[in-house]
Nucleic acid binder design. Sequence first.
DNA 1: TCATAAAATTAGTCTTGACTAATTATTTTA
DNA 2: TAAAATAATTAGTCAAGACTAATTTTATGA
Lengths: 217, 217
Amino acid sequence: MYTLSEENYLKSIYRLAQQPNFKITPTAIAESLGNNPASVVDMIRKLTEKQLIAYDKKKGVELTQQGLKDAVLIVRRHRLWEVFLLEKLGYHWDEIHDIAEELEHISNATLADRLDKFLGFPEYDPHGDPIPKANGKVPKPFSVTLTDLKMGESCRVAAVRDTSSSFLQYLQKLDIGIGTRIQLIEKISFDNSLVISISGKENTTVSQKFGENILID
Amino acid sequence: MYTLSEENYLKSIYRLAQQPNFKITPTAIAESLGNNPASVVDMIRKLTEKQLIAYDKKKGVELTQQGLKDAVLIVRRHRLWEVFLLEKLGYHWDEIHDIAEELEHISNATLADRLDKFLGFPEYDPHGDPIPKANGKVPKPFSVTLTDLKMGESCRVAAVRDTSSSFLQYLQKLDIGIGTRIQLIEKISFDNSLVISISGKENTTVSQKFGENILID
DNA sequence: TCATAAAATTAGTCTTGACTAATTATTTTA
DNA sequence: TAAAATAATTAGTCAAGACTAATTTTATGA
């Protein structure tokens, strides 16, 4: 289909486009890929020529219909492989992302669909992100975070926003996974820290940033 | 680990080294990869510097201990993925090679071993080639072919030598797969064609070349 | 053994996708 | 609004890994 690089740019642009009202600038793409902005400008030119994106100084970068379709397919593959790695091969939460980064680029007309079937058509990946369907439809993502809870309320962890391994390892340490029950005990108004009870156990304090990265049901 | 290209060269050299008494020349490598000999010379230099191969004009190219170890691992990954694609995802015999060519390059310390376990530690891949073990040991390959059968004898198909999709598709047409029973009815002395009965059905005539590519038990 | 063919090698080029440094645009902010 | 800061872009470079064309080595066979 496309080169490794092209696919990574498409995916990165797709991910950035998930943030509502966010203007996708060359710098933003550069940061998300760890590349130099100059390199990004080159690739923007290339992808524009291939009609996968449109770039307008005012609006920033946008995926075209074709670009969106392709990006969604890459994300679909990534998330399906994550499910495979976790459920079938027994990897941990924080190990699967990097491997899926490589697996997602394997292109074969029916691979994603066969894998999807083999896995039982999962709707969400192990990080709770929605897995695009074969027809390109994307299940609704979770959007409420821990910080939206009211005092005393409890919830189930549905997904996480940050997927860095430092965050995922922190979660592991706190014994938090998909489905874990969390109750909000107190909000510290000084810095919006959250005092929570995990699975009914003793209270733990976490930062606002932490809370914003926990999506709940 | 290494670049895509480096890995492909290693694997190609390993495959060529399987043919006994075969001198691995730049031209041979070039042909097996579909590359230009000039490109091969460049890569021979590079791999020699990395101490993965040794090149001697008299002896040709040989894998060093390290090179052999790495090549075996790549072949291990390739063959394990082939088993996965056939057994778990339901691909056909002739579709899996090309996909495994991509999957084999995914490097993660434990991926091959986890996959191996998940598949039940298979000894041979769907083409009947031995799957190197985690410790680098390679199960004994099959070495007797259809042409070694005596008149009237029958056998089981254990593997195939040629893995081109034209051959594999021909096999599919003849309804021959791993495990299929074949009886030798007659050898035509003129051109060594073989008259065989597949799974006890009516007789079929195949060429000597065909027979040499069917490994049997 | 010498001429010819084949193989190996060298030299130089190309493309991809990165980079740095320099320049130009655009935002901020004082 | 002008100066300063930030962002975007251009120009030029680099490495990997392929190529072609030319040259040198090595084999082969008359």
